[in-house]
Design a protein around this nucleic acid. Structure first.
Length: 543
RNA sequence: GCGCCCGUAGCUCAGCUGGAUAGAGCGCUUGCCUCCGGAGCAAGAGGCCACAGGUUCGAAUCCUGUCGGGCGUACCA
């Protein structure tokens, strides 16, 4: 309907010689204001120097709208033009849902295009924490939205298994290992204190009992990396996340990509040496201070491989690149993007999604988390407590740009009244009605149901709610924000529950109406299930 | 100091590119199960949308400033 109105009104505007630039439609909040509305008469008022009402009148005279789609329109006080959809349109759309089934809500915006979503990207120094969880679910769901928008999506995990932190990890493991052998040792300064390393050390001791004080740190480092990565991957799998590519930073060195970046920047005259380090003249790119790319020790800072990695993303030819970062990366990505730009690379298709941190509350108090200090709560522990469905929903129900208060006690205690169960209950309730209908000999028959019978108030409201699903998907894709989807599903469930309390679906005295309502419920269930599917939350038939 | 995010009901938060009487959940008060699952529905109380200016037909939304809170501002990642 939206597309149709846009076409028709645009044509009429052109006919009158008026600008189409500001044409937009919205769904009015109040049902008495119709199904779609435009404010074009008001936005044109200034340029045309006429009153909005006059403009609306002239615009809408002699316009010929298809009565199969638009039942009527109204011109209202300040200058809105409100459109009311026809009953035929409603039933046609309902049929569309029933036919589209598991594809309902998909669109072809990204058809033939590729997208890459980089998320999690935690280095293998410890198990994923509650903090990582937000990014994990955010990135995965975003990737699903892109898939539903037609893109061929690559989920990617970028990691670094070299450098100071990893060496520290190796040393920490070595201490734990020697400790198990009965030596009294102290953890290295700033080392990893987490008890998970004791388990890792135990495994290493079982596999290689002959290591000692003189064994190379690398042996421990490699074992730690392997073990911890296995822990991380198990957690990811558990929460329903599968990455297509694990990109090792080291490969950028091995293939000479790091040096290539340095060469290019050198030729552009953007590098200089100071105090034995190589500096990047970011001040010339509008940043307040220059940044170090290669430390005086010869080791690069994280910025250099980041630039090289993003250069690779461009070279690999993705049409859309989405980086999901925590707020602590806020300062790094402008440097990366501007570096790409000075290297002559197009970076408009790289979108950075920054999410704010998760504040973990335990007994009403803020828990400060640090992987090194080991006073963190792991994602696994959280899943143990409340389950995958609740965890996933909790992480994406809020906008990524606002801080998320994760109240552990509440999450554990409140499972009974959690919004997740509200959604799942709506789905299960429909399944239950289907079971009941079959018991009574009413076999759902979408094809032959007379959908024109569905004209009561709350029924129409429910159908309209379901019709918004594709718009919500589109909105999520445009904004790269997914919290609209759980919010939408919640109101869809509300409309369903309201419908349920208002009307009886199974009525053996009125099989025609029953069949129509069963078809409607089928469409609602399809919509709910598709939405939950995107969120990675199960849609149970009974609870 | 500078950069980014946030400030909306008692609490946690929605409010899409400016639109019509600012919404939801939780909590509180009160109704609704002889009937398809009450993990539900309905009603009520509760708001100077942090503050002050500006832009315009119209601002919670855009701009400027102020005040609060968070995260950065490393030769850590």
């Amino acid at each position: 309907m939206f597309n149709y109105l846009e076409e028709q009104i645009t044509a009429r505007l052109i006919q009158l010689g008026w600008s189409t630039e500001q044409l937009q439609f919205s769904r009015p909040k109040k049902i008495e204001n119709g199904d779609w509305a435009t404010n074009i008469a008001m936005t044109l008022a200034r340029a045309l120097k006429r009153s909005p009402l006059q403009i609306a009148e002239e615009l809408m005279t002699d316009i010929d709208l298809d009565s199969a789609i638009v039942e009527k329109f109204q011109i209202v006080k300040p200058g809105f033009i409100n459109f009311f959809q026809s009953a035929d349109y409603l039933t046609a759309q309902l049929k569309h849902i029933l036919h589209a089934r598991e594809n309902y809500g998909k669109n072809d915006f990204g058809a033939g295009k590729t997208a890459q979503v980089e998320f999690v990207s935690a280095n293998p120094t410890g198990p994923l924490t509650v903090g990582h969880g937000r990014q994990t679910v955010l990135g995965d769901t975003l990737a699903s939205i892109l898939t539903w928008s037609g893109y061929a999506v690559t989920r990617e995990y970028y990691f670094n298994n070299a450098g100071r932190q990893m060496r520290l990890l190796g040393e920490s493991l070595k201490s734990r290992y020697l400790e198990l052998q009965g030596h009294s040792v102290v953890l290295p300064d700033g080392g990893y204190e987490g008890t998970y390393l004791i388990d890792v050390a135990r495994n290493l001791l079982a596999e290689q009992p002959d290591l000692d004080q003189n064994s190379a740190v690398d042996i421990f480092k490699d074992f730690a990396e392997k073990s911890i990565f296995s822990i991380i991957k198990t957690t990811l799998k558990r929460i329903g996340v599968v990455h297509d590519v694990f990109f090792n930073e080291r490969s950028l060195y091995e293939t000479g990509k790091i040096d290539e970046v340095l060469d290019i920047l050198q030729k552009k005259g953007l590098l200089y040496k100071k105090d034995g380090a190589t500096w990047f003249k970011t001040t010339e790119l509008g940043v307040d201070q220059d940044r170090v790319l290669v430390k005086s020790s010869g080791e690069p800072t994280y910025r250099l491989p980041d630039i090289a990695y993003h250069r690779e993303k461009i070279v690999r030819g993705f049409d859309l690149v989405v980086d999901v970062f925590g707020a602590d990366h806020i300062d790094a990505y402008p440097d990366v993007l501007s570096a790409l730009k000075v290297m002559g690379l197009e970076n408009e298709h790289i979108k950075v999604v920054i999410h704010q941190f998760v504040t973990l509350l335990r007994s009403g108090e803020v828990v400060k988390m640090s992987t090194r200090k080991a006073n963190f709560v792991t994602l696994d522990e959280l899943i143990d407590e409340v389950g995958v469905d609740v965890v996933r929903y909790f992480y994406i129900m809020r906008s990524g740009s606002s801080h998320l208060n994760f109240d552990l006690d509440l999450a554990k205690r409140q499972t009974e009244e959690n919004p997740v169960f509200y959604l799942q209950y709506a789905h299960a309730r429909i399944s239950s009605i289907f079971r009941r209908a079959r018991e009574r000999g009413l076999e759902p028959d979408d094809e032959n149901a007379d959908l024109t019978l569905l004209d009561e108030e709350f029924t129409v409201a429910l159908i309209n709610e379901a019709l918004e699903f594709p718009e919500v998907i589109d909105h999520c894709r445009r904004a790269l924000e997914i919290h609209h989807l759980p919010g939408y599903l919640f109101s869809l469930a509300t409309a369903l529950h309201k419908f349920y309390t208002e009307y009886k679906v199974i009525d053996l005295d009125n099989p025609e109406l029953s069949r129509a309502r069963l078809a409607l419920l089928k469409a609602i269930q399809i919509t709910l299930r598709n939405g939950l599917d995107i969120l990675g939350i199960s849609a149970p038939d009974q609870m």
